[in-house]
Amino acid sequence: MIHFVLSISRQGKVRLTKWYSPYTQRERTKVIQELSGMILTRGPKLCNIVEWRGFKVVYRRYAGLYFCMCVNHEDNELEILEIIQYFVETLNRYFGSVCELDLIFHFHQTYYILDEILIAGELQESSKTTVHRLIDAQDSLVEAAKEKENTVSYIIAQVAN
């Protein structure tokens, strides 16, 4: 089970967090500080797995971002590395070449993509085609809702209420 997902910049700024296990806000802050300190100081030739508080934190660096997932000690690290790769590939397809600014300014889409891949800390959908189709369908719904909001009759109805 994945307990949480973090994305941290090389400067230590948190760009994405998703918690699947209960942590208080104080605990979350402490976890982020501890892990960012451990991961950011590691050399590039060291392995991508860190043991932490009886868990394993699997991470991978893409350009200026570290994508981290905390899993149980008995979980398969290679599977988690593949999930991270899958998530980043999906982000790359959606944003072109994903960068830190995409995670900052389009965080709603980023969380939606993550929620299509993971649910309750487990892999929900392993088919890239299915995930891309669902994301495209969601974008179509958002565009249709925006077009509806811009119609004259909708604006008049809103003013009348």
Rank of each mutant, 00 (worst) to 15 (best):
Q138G: 04
F95T: 03
T17S: 06
I84F: 03
E51I: 14
L40S: 00
G54N: 13
S7T: 08
S9P: 07
Q11P: 00
V159H: 12
G96N: 07
R53H: 15
E149M: 03
I2F: 08
F107H: 11
N150K: 10
T130L: 11
Q124P: 01
I155Q: 10
Y94K: 12
L114N: 08
S97G: 05
S140N: 14
L65C: 14
R15P: 00
V58C: 13
K30F: 06
L65D: 10
L103Q: 00
N150L: 03
G37S: 09
Q124G: 01
E89P: 05
V152R: 09
R60S: 12
H132D: 13
E51C: 13
F87Q: 05
E27A: 04
Y154H: 10
H73R: 15
E147H: 09
R60P: 02
H106Y: 04
I104Q: 05
L6R: 06
F105C: 00
T90A: 09
Y62L: 01
L35H: 04
N76I: 14
Y62F: 12
Y111W: 04
D75P: 09
S9K: 00
Q158D: 07
N150F: 02
M69R: 06
C70R: 04
A157S: 13
Y154M: 07
C68F: 05
T110N: 01
I80C: 14
E122P: 01
D136F: 05
C47E: 12
I39R: 02
D136I: 10
T17G: 00
E143H: 07
T110E: 00
Q109G: 01
F55I: 07
R60V: 02
R93T: 10
